[in-house]
């Protein structure tokens, strides 16, 4: 499949959303709402659930399944209050030593007046520093679109997994084509050049493993469930100091430079 076909697959309307992943992977999901500062952003779905009996904090993006839901969820593009809602759940997870699982499918953080005025950048930045040193295991799963800083805000983790047809990029191929080449017809070239497929990202060690989709999503859910159980078990057994130092190193080694 070409890179841009993956982009289209990741964005497909009939692709299961993060809420489907939650319903099929976890039991007893209890939704917890609001950021206690401004409001409740429906673009972020958060709460506590059980994974094979183990309590975990789940933070996901949400695009919605029908028009009404999509509008309420702002098509999966979170405002600062969404990131602060996530932040609140991260800190609660740390307090109760619950592992965190994040599920990400967003075109990106919302670009708008309210978002800017309420500190979109600051909210994302706070997620990054908080996750980097959160004293409990964190696993991030990119389920569809991984749109830039808005996705990264929930994806600083001990392990990052990616669905076979998910994409993860610093900018959308459309944005890249229009900014760099001022030519919207070059979107497919941009998709190829940005190296945004799961295989590309595995090669860069930005993701640790790929979840196959070929056998259908039910198989994928079962796969994720068993991997989560094993990996969270192993991460929980680590000394927190070692966990955090490995997380720091995971990102410390990313990126190329000369000299």
């Amino acid at each position: 499949m070409q890179a841009f076909d993956r982009v289209l697959a990741a964005r497909a309307k009939d692709r299961p959303g993060c809420a489907d992943f939650i319903a099929n992977i976890f039991d007893d999901f209890v939704e917890l709402r609001g950021d206690r500062r401004y409001g409740d952003d429906k673009a972020i779905l958060a709460g506590i659930a059980r994974l094979e009996g183990m309590p975990v904090t789940v933070v996901a993006t949400q695009k919605g399944t029908c028009t009404g839901e999509r509008v309420a969820a702002n098509f999966g593009c979170a405002h600062p209050e969404g990131y602060r809602k996530a932040l609140r759940q991260f800190l609660l997870a740390e307090k109760f030593a619950r592992p965190v699982v994040t599920l990400i499918d967003t075109a990106g953080a919302y670009c708008g007046l309210g978002a800017e005025e309420r500190g979109q950048a600051q909210a994302i930045a706070e997620c990054l520093t908080t996750l980097m040193t959160l004293r409990t295991p964190v696993i991030a799963i990119l389920t569809g679109e991984g749109g830039s800083g808005g996705a990264l805000a929930l994806a600083v983790a001990d392990r990052v997994w990616m669905m076979e047809n998910a994409v993860y990029s610093v900018i959308s191929p459309e944005g890249c084509a229009s900014i760099l080449w001022k030519d919207a017809s070059k979107t497919e070239d941009a998709a190829r050049s940005l190296k945004l497929t799961a295989e590309d990202l595995l090669g860069f060690h930005v993701v640790d493993s790929i979840v196959p989709e070929g056998a259908g999503f039910d198989k994928a859910y079962a796969d994720i469930r068993s991997r989560l159980k094993d990996t969270l078990g192993a991460l929980k057994a680590l000394d927190v100091k070692d966990l955090l130092s490995a997380r720091y190193k995971r990102y410390r080694t990313m990126g190329g430079f000369l000299g």
């Binding site: 980097m132 990264l152 990029s169 410390r252």
Partner: peptide
Amino acid sequence: ARMQEGILSLMQMAKTSGA
């Protein structure tokens, strides 16, 4: 982020935040 370095430039946000 420098988009010519793709996802690796995005990861610099996490890397610098850690530091």
